[in-house]
Computed example of a mutant assay.
Amino acid sequence: MSFFQNTCKPKGIGGKIMVHMMNTGHSSMAEWGFTHMEIQSDNVCLDIGCGGGANVRKLLEKSPYGRVVGIDHSEISVEKSKKINKAGIESKRCEILQGDVMKLPFRGETFDVITAFETIYFWPDISEAFKKVYKILKIGGTFMICNESNGENPKDEKWTKIIQGMKIYNSEQIEKSLEDAGFRGVKVDKTKKGWICAVVKKL
Protein backbone atom coordinates (compact mmCIF):
# COMPACT_ATOMS: atom_id res chain seq x y z
CA MET A 1 0.00 0.00 0.00
CA SER A 2 1.35 3.44 -0.93
CA PHE A 3 1.77 6.04 1.81
CA PHE A 4 -0.89 8.26 0.22
CA GLN A 5 -3.46 5.46 0.45
CA ASN A 6 -3.51 6.37 4.15
CA THR A 7 -5.55 9.44 3.25
CA CYS A 8 -8.41 7.04 2.56
CA LYS A 9 -8.01 4.69 5.50
CA PRO A 10 -4.95 5.23 7.72
CA LYS A 11 -3.20 2.04 8.81
CA GLY A 12 -0.02 1.20 10.72
CA ILE A 13 2.92 3.58 11.19
CA GLY A 14 2.22 5.37 7.91
CA GLY A 15 -1.36 5.90 9.01
CA LYS A 16 -0.27 7.44 12.30
CA ILE A 17 1.98 9.85 10.42
CA MET A 18 -0.83 10.68 8.01
CA VAL A 19 -3.45 11.53 10.67
CA HIS A 20 -0.92 13.84 12.35
CA MET A 21 -0.25 15.50 8.99
CA MET A 22 -3.98 15.87 8.33
CA ASN A 23 -4.60 17.51 11.71
CA THR A 24 -1.99 20.18 11.00
CA GLY A 25 -2.16 20.44 7.21
CA HIS A 26 -5.94 20.87 6.98
CA SER A 27 -6.35 23.34 9.85
CA SER A 28 -6.46 26.50 7.68
CA MET A 29 -9.05 24.99 5.34
CA ALA A 30 -11.14 23.85 8.31
CA GLU A 31 -11.08 27.32 9.89
CA TRP A 32 -12.24 28.76 6.56
CA GLY A 33 -14.99 26.15 6.38
CA PHE A 34 -16.26 26.95 9.86
CA THR A 35 -16.77 30.61 8.87
CA HIS A 36 -19.64 29.47 6.63
CA MET A 37 -21.92 28.27 9.41
CA GLU A 38 -23.27 29.22 12.81
CA ILE A 39 -22.87 26.73 15.64
CA GLN A 40 -24.91 27.31 18.78
CA SER A 41 -23.41 26.74 22.23
CA ASP A 42 -25.71 23.78 22.96
CA ASN A 43 -25.68 22.09 19.53
CA VAL A 44 -25.33 18.34 19.07
CA CYS A 45 -22.72 17.87 16.34
CA LEU A 46 -21.33 15.04 14.23
CA ASP A 47 -18.07 15.02 12.27
CA ILE A 48 -18.07 12.25 9.66
CA GLY A 49 -14.62 11.01 8.70
CA CYS A 50 -13.20 12.68 11.79
CA GLY A 51 -9.62 11.61 11.06
CA GLY A 52 -7.26 12.72 13.79
CA GLY A 53 -9.99 14.57 15.67
CA ALA A 54 -8.88 18.18 15.19
CA ASN A 55 -12.31 19.28 13.95
CA VAL A 56 -14.07 17.37 16.71
CA ARG A 57 -12.03 19.48 19.12
CA LYS A 58 -13.06 22.67 17.27
CA LEU A 59 -16.72 21.64 17.43
CA LEU A 60 -16.39 21.05 21.18
CA GLU A 61 -15.01 24.57 21.55
CA LYS A 62 -17.82 26.06 19.48
CA SER A 63 -20.57 24.19 21.36
CA PRO A 64 -19.39 24.35 25.01
CA TYR A 65 -22.76 23.20 26.35
CA GLY A 66 -23.44 20.74 23.57
CA ARG A 67 -22.20 17.33 22.53
CA VAL A 68 -19.95 16.17 19.69
CA VAL A 69 -19.64 12.77 18.04
CA GLY A 70 -16.83 11.84 15.66
CA ILE A 71 -16.96 8.77 13.42
CA ASP A 72 -14.28 7.27 11.18
CA HIS A 73 -13.73 3.86 9.56
CA SER A 74 -10.03 3.81 10.46
CA GLU A 75 -8.93 2.33 13.78
CA ILE A 76 -5.83 4.55 13.69
CA SER A 77 -7.95 7.69 13.22
CA VAL A 78 -10.30 6.71 16.04
CA GLU A 79 -7.36 6.12 18.36
CA LYS A 80 -5.82 9.52 17.57
CA SER A 81 -9.15 11.32 17.79
CA LYS A 82 -9.86 9.82 21.20
CA LYS A 83 -6.42 10.89 22.39
CA ILE A 84 -6.73 14.56 21.46
CA ASN A 85 -10.33 14.76 22.69
CA LYS A 86 -9.72 12.93 25.96
CA ALA A 87 -11.07 15.79 28.10
CA GLY A 88 -14.31 15.96 26.11
CA ILE A 89 -14.78 12.21 26.34
CA GLU A 90 -14.15 12.21 30.10
CA SER A 91 -16.71 15.00 30.57
CA LYS A 92 -19.27 12.92 28.59
CA ARG A 93 -19.55 15.65 25.94
CA CYS A 94 -17.70 13.72 23.26
CA GLU A 95 -17.85 10.27 21.74
CA ILE A 96 -15.59 8.82 19.04
CA LEU A 97 -16.87 5.82 17.10
CA GLN A 98 -15.43 3.52 14.49
CA GLY A 99 -17.96 3.14 11.70
CA ASP A 100 -18.93 3.49 8.06
CA VAL A 101 -20.68 6.47 6.50
CA MET A 102 -22.96 4.04 4.63
CA LYS A 103 -24.11 2.51 7.93
CA LEU A 104 -24.39 5.44 10.31
CA PRO A 105 -25.49 4.10 13.73
CA PHE A 106 -27.76 6.99 14.72
CA ARG A 107 -31.48 7.61 15.02
CA GLY A 108 -33.32 10.01 12.75
CA GLU A 109 -33.09 13.73 13.51
CA THR A 110 -30.31 13.41 16.08
CA PHE A 111 -27.88 16.19 15.09
CA ASP A 112 -28.05 19.97 14.76
CA VAL A 113 -24.77 20.14 12.84
CA ILE A 114 -23.01 17.58 10.63
CA THR A 115 -19.60 18.23 9.06
CA ALA A 116 -17.53 16.37 6.48
CA PHE A 117 -13.99 17.67 5.96
CA GLU A 118 -11.81 16.18 3.20
CA THR A 119 -13.75 12.93 3.29
CA ILE A 120 -16.49 12.66 0.65
CA TYR A 121 -13.76 11.78 -1.88
CA PHE A 122 -13.74 8.31 -0.33
CA TRP A 123 -17.46 7.70 0.20
CA PRO A 124 -18.60 4.80 -2.01
CA ASP A 125 -21.78 6.58 -3.13
CA ILE A 126 -22.26 10.22 -2.13
CA SER A 127 -25.92 10.32 -3.18
CA GLU A 128 -26.80 7.43 -0.88
CA ALA A 129 -24.54 8.76 1.88
CA PHE A 130 -26.19 12.18 1.70
CA LYS A 131 -29.58 10.52 2.13
CA LYS A 132 -28.31 8.92 5.34
CA VAL A 133 -26.99 12.29 6.52
CA TYR A 134 -30.36 13.89 5.72
CA LYS A 135 -32.15 11.30 7.83
CA ILE A 136 -30.08 11.88 11.00
CA LEU A 137 -30.02 15.69 10.71
CA LYS A 138 -32.66 17.62 12.66
CA ILE A 139 -35.15 19.89 10.86
CA GLY A 140 -33.36 23.23 10.61
CA GLY A 141 -30.00 21.53 11.04
CA THR A 142 -26.90 22.30 8.97
CA PHE A 143 -24.71 19.98 6.88
CA MET A 144 -21.34 21.27 5.70
CA ILE A 145 -18.89 19.71 3.25
CA CYS A 146 -15.40 21.18 2.96
CA ASN A 147 -12.71 19.97 0.53
CA GLU A 148 -9.29 21.18 -0.60
CA SER A 149 -10.12 20.26 -4.20
CA ASN A 150 -13.18 21.64 -6.01
CA GLY A 151 -12.90 19.32 -9.01
CA GLU A 152 -11.97 22.11 -11.43
CA ASN A 153 -8.19 21.65 -11.51
CA PRO A 154 -7.11 18.82 -13.85
CA LYS A 155 -3.85 18.49 -11.90
CA ASP A 156 -5.80 17.20 -8.89
CA GLU A 157 -6.87 14.17 -10.88
CA LYS A 158 -3.42 12.64 -10.36
CA TRP A 159 -4.50 11.84 -6.79
CA THR A 160 -7.38 9.68 -8.00
CA LYS A 161 -4.80 7.53 -9.80
CA ILE A 162 -2.49 7.34 -6.77
CA ILE A 163 -5.21 6.76 -4.16
CA GLN A 164 -7.50 3.81 -4.82
CA GLY A 165 -11.20 4.55 -4.32
CA MET A 166 -10.82 8.33 -4.46
CA LYS A 167 -13.13 10.55 -6.52
CA ILE A 168 -13.05 14.34 -6.69
CA TYR A 169 -16.41 16.10 -7.08
CA ASN A 170 -17.17 19.52 -8.53
CA SER A 171 -19.78 21.89 -7.14
CA GLU A 172 -22.47 20.82 -9.61
CA GLN A 173 -22.07 17.14 -8.67
CA ILE A 174 -22.17 17.91 -4.95
CA GLU A 175 -25.20 20.17 -5.30
CA LYS A 176 -27.15 17.64 -7.41
CA SER A 177 -26.41 14.79 -4.99
CA LEU A 178 -27.52 16.93 -2.03
CA GLU A 179 -30.75 17.88 -3.81
CA ASP A 180 -31.37 14.23 -4.75
CA ALA A 181 -31.07 13.43 -1.04
CA GLY A 182 -33.80 15.96 -0.17
CA PHE A 183 -31.74 19.06 0.67
CA ARG A 184 -32.65 22.45 -0.79
CA GLY A 185 -30.88 25.81 -1.01
CA VAL A 186 -27.28 24.62 -1.27
CA LYS A 187 -24.75 27.43 -0.82
CA VAL A 188 -21.30 26.90 -2.34
CA ASP A 189 -18.16 28.96 -1.84
CA LYS A 190 -14.74 28.51 -3.45
CA THR A 191 -11.31 30.05 -3.03
CA LYS A 192 -8.51 30.82 -5.48
CA LYS A 193 -6.61 27.96 -3.86
CA GLY A 194 -9.26 25.58 -5.16
CA TRP A 195 -10.97 24.93 -1.83
CA ILE A 196 -14.72 24.34 -1.83
CA CYS A 197 -17.33 24.59 0.91
CA ALA A 198 -20.95 23.52 0.48
CA VAL A 199 -23.48 24.33 3.21
CA VAL A 200 -27.12 23.31 3.31
CA LYS A 201 -29.95 23.18 5.82
CA LYS A 202 -32.64 20.54 6.25
CA LEU A 203 -35.89 22.44 5.81
Score class of each variant (00 low, 15 high):
M1L: 11
F4E: 08
N6S: 07
N6R: 05
N6H: 02
T7N: 04
K9D: 07
K9P: 05
P10G: 11
P10Y: 09
G12K: 09
G14W: 03
I17L: 12
V19Y: 01
M21L: 15
M22W: 00
M22A: 07
N23A: 04
T24L: 11
G25R: 06
G25F: 13
G25C: 12
S27V: 04
S28G: 05
S28A: 12
M29L: 14
A30C: 10
F34W: 01
H36A: 10
E38S: 07
E38M: 09
Q40D: 10
Q40C: 04
N43L: 00
N43H: 11
C50Q: 00
G51I: 04
G52R: 05
A54F: 05
A54W: 04
A54E: 07
V56G: 00
V56T: 02
R57L: 04
R57Q: 05
L59Q: 08
E61T: 04
K62I: 03
S63P: 03
V68G: 02
S74R: 06
S77F: 00
S77N: 03
V78A: 02
V78H: 03
E79Y: 08
E79H: 07
K80H: 05
K80R: 12
K82A: 00
I84H: 02
N85C: 06
A87S: 09
I89F: 00
I89P: 00
E90A: 06
S91D: 14
C94A: 09
E95D: 06
I96S: 03
D100M: 11
M102T: 15
L104N: 14
L104Y: 06
E109Q: 11
F111C: 07
F111L: 06
A116Q: 10
A116W: 08
A116N: 11
A116V: 08
F117D: 02
F117E: 04
F117N: 03
Y121I: 02
Y121Q: 06
F122R: 07
D125K: 15
I126M: 14
A129K: 13
F130I: 08
K131G: 13
K132N: 14
K132Y: 12
K132R: 15
I136T: 01
I139G: 05
I139F: 10
G141K: 04
T142M: 09
T142V: 10
F143T: 02
E148H: 14
N150E: 03
G151R: 13
N153G: 09
N153Q: 05
K155M: 13
D156R: 10
D156L: 05
K161L: 12
K161H: 10
I162R: 14
I162H: 14
I163V: 01
I163S: 01
Q164Y: 12
Q164A: 15
K167D: 05
I168G: 13
S171H: 11
S171D: 15
S171E: 12
E179C: 13
R184E: 12
R184P: 02
K187M: 08
K187E: 14
D189E: 13
K190S: 00
K190Q: 09
K193G: 04
G194P: 11
W195G: 03
I196V: 15
C197T: 15
V200E: 00
